[in-house]
Design a protein around this nucleic acid. Structure first.
Lengths: 343, 343
DNA sequence: CTGGGCTATGTTAGCGGTAACGGCAGCGAT
DNA sequence: ATCGCTGCCGTTACCGCTAACATAGCCCAG
């Protein structure tokens, strides 16, 4: 593989190279490249031409050290492979787009220890802000966030005490609302199917809110089934089969996410079960995927895009509230009954 | 929101703070914190204790500038919201895990210009390597890659000329193979349904290979349908309906990805079409999702995890081939006939 | 023609670390 | 006693860039 005939892969270029090539001081080159300060049009062009010709790429490491400013925003999330966080990312990226800030993602795989170390790693690059999923962190992580001296936004969830700002929905309330809708529709033998991950606090809170509302109506879950890992769609089928076999009296299945709910829905339809007459179904997240299903699954959207958008606005200091930090912004998901809750 | 009662949000800590707190030189602190060089056990502990107590987080910006070493690997991909790149990311992360290297993702949304600017931005942080999707880049991007002086790995595709190394599959060959299997199964009236994105070169190459094999058998596509954006599952349904309405003679539908293929499959099953008797279906990617479908869609896995793994190994300099760079590693996807190709 | 206020550019001093080298005990071998 | 180690730690000189200030023309009011 012969590389293109570059004269010599010489050491990487610096401002000095550009300054020499264009006959001005390094400072002037720096000013041109950052569009800062006054530079005459003719020098500007001479400098730009030289930079382009040499293929100069500025060294942000040196720049950041000198200016004590870093245009990075640390974004720490549990996973990229479900449908929810990529959409949050989209909201963040879109909003950051024209602020000069850039998101840098770290993935924790729902592990608190990994979260701690990812956070440490990212903070060591001195970002201008942190967006981090959830309100539950290790003690050390909490301390780092509190001491960082930069805006912190905890996203997705507001049931707890944020370090600084928070943007999200109340999962407890979401669980409650869904339970109320289900009860109102006349279902009484309700089962829960969800993830077992010990650290998915938001799924846990939804379940808590759900059971709370059931209790208020004098009901308890008739059955529950948990899973971890694997193809969510397939797991949804399997779990549904397991529950329906074990507890034939069940008339409603509440899933902790849409993906397994979709699996359950496909299973029920395949089995010829009357949905929502005989059995009702509901999921959580409001993922786009559902639009393509034979029947629309009842769900609640989690305001993912909006969460990303608002979090980014807070970091960029352009949130309408105008506050400096320490705000808790609650968003309100809407319940979409779809075709799988009767009434 | 009162913060925890930290005595004073004082300026951020430096090595000097730790060195004063532990009564040794900054250099020694640096050595302890990096586990490098000889330090007596007692001083090491004194330093660590002080660092922990103060909550010191090293400044990698300064460190990187001084040492001319950055433990970041730039990963530049078109999207995070389909199922393919997250899995590549997983392969990369897993492999980088114990090398001290850290991936940093940039997303281009399939836009060459955005790719160029993301690349520029990332190179300005002087990463130790670049993993970038595809072989097609703007001229400027090509130049930057060639000049960067660090290992570059272009992933997913090997039908073209890599700047340095490449890891991927031949999409042209993949398209050909699928066509051959379809023809061998006796289908003759074949339609293509896929993405319209002008910059999805890999989908384009698959289609090219596909048509090439058809031609060799004296066949041409009976129909074709393109889309962009929206819920892939839903689009799959809609496109399938459109094609079947327009060209009732069609007996095979080749989709450019599994997601729209799944939508098509659900549509066909819903319409009571005999699959694979009356109509056969095939997708591409081998996503886990398919496992949960009522019938398994024929597909070809794209070796996503493996691609990520190998790319990361090359960057980390621990690929078995032992070469320094400039290698092209072709992986071979396997065709899974599933339940949607007869025979 | 002179001082003040531009504008366009250069100079100086770090930013917070680390590479490279230097120094100095302590200690066994000669 | 001398030498040469090795183990531990400090000093010095940057890394490549930018904030802050200094400087040099230049124009115009007084």
């Amino acid at each position: 593989m012969s590389k293109p005939p570059s004269p010599e892969p010489r050491r990487t270029l610096t401002l000095r190279d550009v300054s020499e090539a264009s006959g001005v001081s390094e400072m002037t080159v720096s000013r041109v490249l950052r569009n800062r300060g006054d530079v005459s049009e003719t020098t500007r062009e001479r400098v730009l031409e030289a930079a382009r010709r040499l293929g100069y790429v500025p060294n942000k490491i040196a720049g950041a050290l000198a200016s004590q400013r870093v245009n990075l925003v640390a974004v720490i999330i549990p996973s990229l492979s479900n449908m929810v966080f990529p959409e949050v990312m989209t909201g963040i990226s879109d909003t950051l787009e024209d602020t000069g800030l850039q998101p840098v993602v770290g993935v924790t795989n729902y592990s608190p220890d990994r979260e701690e170390s990812v956070l440490y790693e990212m903070l060591s690059w001195r970002p201008s802000g942190v967006i981090i999923a959830g309100l539950e962190h290790t003690e050390a992580a909490q301390a780092m966030l509190a001491q960082a001296g930069i805006p912190i936004v905890e996203i997705m969830d507001i049931d707890g005490n944020p370090v600084d700002s928070a943007v999200g929905i109340s999962h407890r309330r979401a669980g409650r609302q869904m339970a109320e809708a289900i009860i109102a529709a006349g279902y009484r033998n309700i089962a829960f199917l969800g993830t077992m991950m010990p650290y998915d606090h938001r799924a846990r809170k939804r379940l808590e809110g759900f059971e709370e509302a059931l209790a208020k109506a004098g009901l308890v879950l008739v059955d529950r089934e948990f899973y971890s890992g694997g193809s969510a769609l397939l797991k949804g089928r399997e779990m549904t089969e397991a529950v329906l076999t074990r507890s034939p009296q069940v008339d409603f299945l509440y899933y902790s996410n849409d993906m397994i709910g979709a699996g359950g829905l496909l299973y029920c339809l395949h089995k010829g079960i009357d949905v929502p007459g005989q059995i009702g179904l509901a999921g959580f997240n409001g993922v786009e995927l559902l639009d393509g299903l034979p029947r629309k699954l009842a769900t609640m959207d989690a305001c993912r895009l909006e969460i990303g958008r608002v979090a980014a606005e807070i970091i960029a200091g352009k949130h309408p509230s105008g506050q400096i930090g320490g705000e808790v912004i609650e968003l309100f998901p809407t319940l979409q009954k779809g075709d799988t809750i009767r009434g």
